Amino acid sequence: MNNERPQKMYLYARFERFWHWAQALLILILLVTGFEIHGTYTLLGFERAFTVHNFCAWTWLVLYAFIVFWMITTGEWRQYTPTYKKVLEVAWYYAFGIFQGKPHPVPKTKRTKHNPLQRLTYLGIVSVLVPFQLITGYLYYFYNSWDQLGLDWGLSGVAILHTIGGFAMLVFVITHIYMTTTGHTVLAHTKAMITGWEEVHDPASVGEWEYKK
Rank of each mutant, 00 (worst) to 15 (best):
T185Q: 07
V90W: 01
A168Q: 11
L134Y: 11
K110F: 15
T181L: 09
G101H: 04
P116I: 00
F96R: 11
T185H: 07
K191F: 08
P107Y: 08
K113P: 00
P131Y: 03
D202S: 08
L123V: 12
H176T: 02
I160E: 10
L117G: 03
I98F: 08
T136H: 03
G97D: 01
E89S: 14
K113W: 04
T163V: 14
E199K: 13
M179P: 04
N115W: 03
G165R: 00
T182E: 07
Y122V: 06
K85H: 13
Y141D: 05
Y141Q: 06
W209M: 09
H114G: 08
L170K: 05
Y122W: 05
Y140V: 09
W153D: 04
F142N: 07
I194V: 11
S205P: 01
I160C: 09
Y122P: 02
L187N: 11
S205F: 08
G183C: 00
H114I: 09
G196R: 00
H176I: 03
I98W: 06
L170P: 02
G157K: 11
W92T: 07
T175F: 14
S127K: 14
R119E: 04
A91Q: 05
L151N: 07
F99I: 08
K108I: 15
T163E: 13
T175C: 15
V171M: 13
A159V: 14
T182Y: 06
L155T: 10
V126Y: 13
P203A: 03
I164N: 06
F172C: 11
V206I: 10
L129F: 04
N144K: 12
Q118I: 08
F132L: 09
Y93K: 01
A168F: 12
S156N: 15
V87C: 09
D202I: 04
V173C: 08
T181R: 06
A91I: 11
A91H: 04
